[in-house]
């Protein structure tokens, strides 16, 4: 930065040995030939432009990300002729609510939904119970081989789930849940293998470990058993993590496709994803795929998840975000 003092009238350096400082002299700081005021204003302009550009960029990308959802909704309300016409429309000319009515007739939404909810509830409950017990044992109790077992558990996280499918299918059929499948068999086959999650145990253990020893000792002094302490103190304190686990597990069941597809032998036992992918939304007369119906069904499958997200946004994003901290 170059400092220079200017007299107001003439552009000349002032020799302070000769000139007395009086009211006529104004201090002005310059950098590269620009006064600070000019620099400040250009900086402001640059800042505004970058802000606008950033917003434009972000908004454009956000619109691209959200566009499939928009297209799904408007396509679900279009007639077939409009979907297939050369000039694509961004809003349906005729809003066809009847697409939804048709889909509810053809697509057995309530059965799939019922199956999914039953499987989700039981596998979530099972996971929660096993996770709470295991996390309690790992974080609070002390016994020989605890750390070894925990290490082995952590190691199992490395095994790709895809590899287990092969043997688990054999195991489940050895349990008799595949042959002559009843509804209970199908549910058992879909719930039991997913009642444990090492990652959730790890997550909850970290949470339990943060609960101070003092609380445990105080409970001991008051004559509480481990069991009481677990349910009356630790579980309520870890409630946010448990809620996150519950929601993520529910979402997992809602999206699970491979395993249910493999172990369910009747259409009536399948889950929502299988139903959606397996259902044929063809025109009853011509056999051509009706994209309007397909999209209406997709909307029906997506909306419950969205509702869940709207109500539990905080827990979902926290729960998912935690996964990153573990690294």
């Amino acid at each position: 930065m170059a400092f220079a003092l200017f007299k107001k009238s003439e552009n000349q350096y002032i020799n302070f040995r000769k000139v007395k400082v009086n009211n006529n002299i104004v201090l002005s700081i310059e950098e590269a030939g620009k006064t600070t005021e000019a620099i400040k204003s250009t900086e402001k302009v640059v800042k505004i432009i970058t802000t606008i550009l950033t917003y434009a960029f972000i908004l454009a990308l956000a619109l691209i990300v959200v566009f499939p959802f928009y297209w799904m909704i408007i396509t679900s309300l279009k007639q077939r002729a409009e979907i297939e016409q050369i000039n694509q429309t961004f809003f349906p000319n005729v809003v066809m609510w009847s697409n939804y009515a048709y889909v509810f007739q053809v697509f057995d939404f309530s059965t799939y939904m019922g199956n999914t909810i039953v499987v989700a509830i039981f596998s979530t409950l099972g996971t929660l119970i096993t996770t709470i017990f295991a996390a309690f044992a790992f974080s609070r109790l002390r016994f020989k081989g605890r750390d070894t077992v925990f290490f082995v558990f952590l190691m199992t996280m490395m095994i790709p789930g895809e590899m287990m499918v092969i043997s688990n299918y054999l195991t489940v059929s050895a349990f008799g849940w595949i042959k002559d499948q009843t509804r209970t068999d199908a549910y058992l086959a879909m719930v039991i293998p997913f009642m444990v999650s090492v990652f959730h145990i790890y997550l909850l253990r970290q949470n339990f470990k943060q609960i101070p020893d003092a609380l445990y000792l105080a409970a001991k002094v008051d004559g509480k058993s481990d069991w009481d302490f677990l349910w009356k103190v630790m579980v309520p304190l870890a409630a946010p993590t448990l809620i996150s686990i519950t929601i993520l597990k529910f979402m997992g069941t809602w999206n699970s496709y491979v395993w249910p597809n493999l172990v369910t032998k009747k259409e009536a036992f399948r889950l929502i994803s299988n139903g959606l992918r397996g259902a044929a939304f063809n025109d009853p007369d011509s056999g051509i795929i009706e994209y309007g119906y397909q999209m209406a069904a997709s909307v029906c499958v997506t909306v419950p998840l969205f509702l869940l997200f709207v109500f539990f946004r905080k827990y979902i994003m926290k729960g998912v975000g935690r996964a990153g901290i573990k690294g």
């Binding site: 990308l61 956000a62 990300v65 959200v66 499939p68 959802f69 297209w71 799904m72 396509t75 979402m251 809602w254 999206n255 496709y257 929502i272 994803s273 959606l276 992918r277 994209y291 397909q294 999209m295 069904a297 997709s298 909307v299 499958v301 997506t302 998840l305 969205f306 869940l308 997200f309 946004r313 979902i316 994003m317 998912v320």
Partner: peptide
């Protein structure tokens, strides 16, 4: 939140949407 939306969707449903797109 807008950018997070694709996370809370059913892969099958959105796959159908992409195949329509």
């Amino acid at each position: 939140t807008m950018f997070f939306l694709p996370y809370v969707t059913n892969a099958m449903a959105v796959g159908l949407v992409f195949s329509v797109l």
